[in-house]
């Protein structure tokens, strides 16, 4: 499941219950009364141990020069060499830069479009029309990039549908997939296209909660439609916007693996290669011969570690700025 999507839903659950004062607990009676709470956690604990922690020794691969032939035990330890190899390669910096800028671009543009879309769709009175538009715009969210990618390569080609429109205005065709300067924007644009409808769902749900009397009062005061949107609707979802922005911080090192994989090519590596594609190329496919599993694991570990910290920070920020407790 796409974690960022779920996170977007989180906010609609209410704020956390107040913390309970720390009274002295008689553990004996506590367990007698509350044992089901612990029993209920058993499946999750077993599942975590078997499927999460048991394979986690694989992280040690990052500190070895792993050969699938030798197996784990016989592969030599190399300390932090895999990490230093990554950072000393010419690719570390551009890849980090690309990853962060593409991810930030997707978050910012995606949020803005989703919010604007929600604001305007909220103005639509016809219930049927609203629902139809909503269904149509969320459709793409449910399809994987593997399926959409091939289609997009065609549509964005020099003679593709989009460029036919561009050239009909007498402009030069845009090289969406082969101009390094344009490519990140292509990624951002396509991601926004695919996800804005879905992103708007949460805002639309929140908008229905704004007190209608506010609008009426504003209308009486002579506020026009745009003024109402700006002064009532927008503030009504302000907290939500802050919250979503905070939470999206956790995804800043994931710029969309599948999307980039199906759309990029060597010409746009300079601006389009991201951490995930790098890990995939190095660690799973390998360039001519064997995949460098250890290097892939090391970079993946870095990504996971930083990602974990970022998520914790994002939860803290959400708590601080939107007064929302995720945990």
């Amino acid at each position: 499941m796409d974690s960022s999507v779920v996170l977007k839903e989180v906010e609609l659950a209410p704020p956390a219950a107040p913390k309970v004062g720390r009274a002295k607990i008689n553990w004996r009676t506590h367990f007698q009364q509350h044992w089901p709470l612990y029993v209920m956690l058993i499946p999750a604990i077993v599942s975590m141990i078997l499927f999460r922690f048991y394979p986690m020794w694989g992280i040690l691969f990052a500190f070895k020069k792993y050969s699938p032939v030798a197996g784990f035990a016989k592969s030599p330890w190399v300390g932090l060499k895999n990490f230093s190899r990554f950072f000393s390669s010419d690719y570390a910096l551009p890849i980090l830069r690309n990853t962060i800028s593409i991810a930030v671009g997707k978050i910012v543009v995606g949020q803005i479009v989703a919010i604007l879309f929600a604001l305007f769709l909220n103005e639509v009175r016809s219930h049927f029309f609203k629902r139809t538009v909503q269904t149509m715009t969320t459709l793409a969210h449910f399809l994987s990039w593997i399926i959409i990618g091939g289609m997009m390569v065609q549509i964005l080609s020099t003679k593709g549908a989009v460029n036919q429109i561009v050239t009909s205005f007498g402009l030069e065709p845009i090289r969406f997939l082969s101009d390094p300067a344009v490519f990140p924007w292509t990624l951002i644009g396509l991601e926004t296209w695919k996800e804005f409808g879905w992103g708007a769902v949460i805002y639309l749900a929140a908008l229905t909660n704004i007190n209608p009397e506010l609008y009426e009062a504003a209308a009486v005061d002579g506020a026009d439609r745009f003024q109402r949107m700006r002064h009532i609707t927008l503030p009504g979802i302000k907290t939500l916007i802050i919250l979503m922005s905070c939470l999206s911080l956790g995804g800043i090192l994931s710029a969309g693996f599948e999307q980039v994989l199906v759309l990029y090519n060597p010409v746009v590596y300079k601006t389009g290669d991201i951490l995930d594609t790098y890990i995939y190329r190095v660690g799973l496919v390998g360039s001519g011969g064997m995949p460098d599993y250890s290097l892939g694991t090391a970079v993946g570990l870095l990504q996971g570690g930083v990602g974990f910290v970022l998520i914790l920070v994002s939860y803290w920020l959400a708590d601080k700025f939107a007064n929302y407790r995720v945990f």
């Binding site: 390669s89 010419d90 082969s178 060597p266 590596y269 300079k270 360039s287 001519g288 064997m290």
Partner: peptide, 27 residues
């Protein structure tokens, strides 16, 4: 392939592909 080739060639290959194609398309 020797150790140097194993370690360095993948990056160099990426460099080569990138440069050659970018020259061709005029970037």
């Amino acid at each position: 392939p020797g150790p140097k080739m194993t370690e360095r060639l993948p990056d160099l290959k990426t460099l080569e592909d990138t440069v050659f194609l970018n020259i061709i398309v005029g970037n």
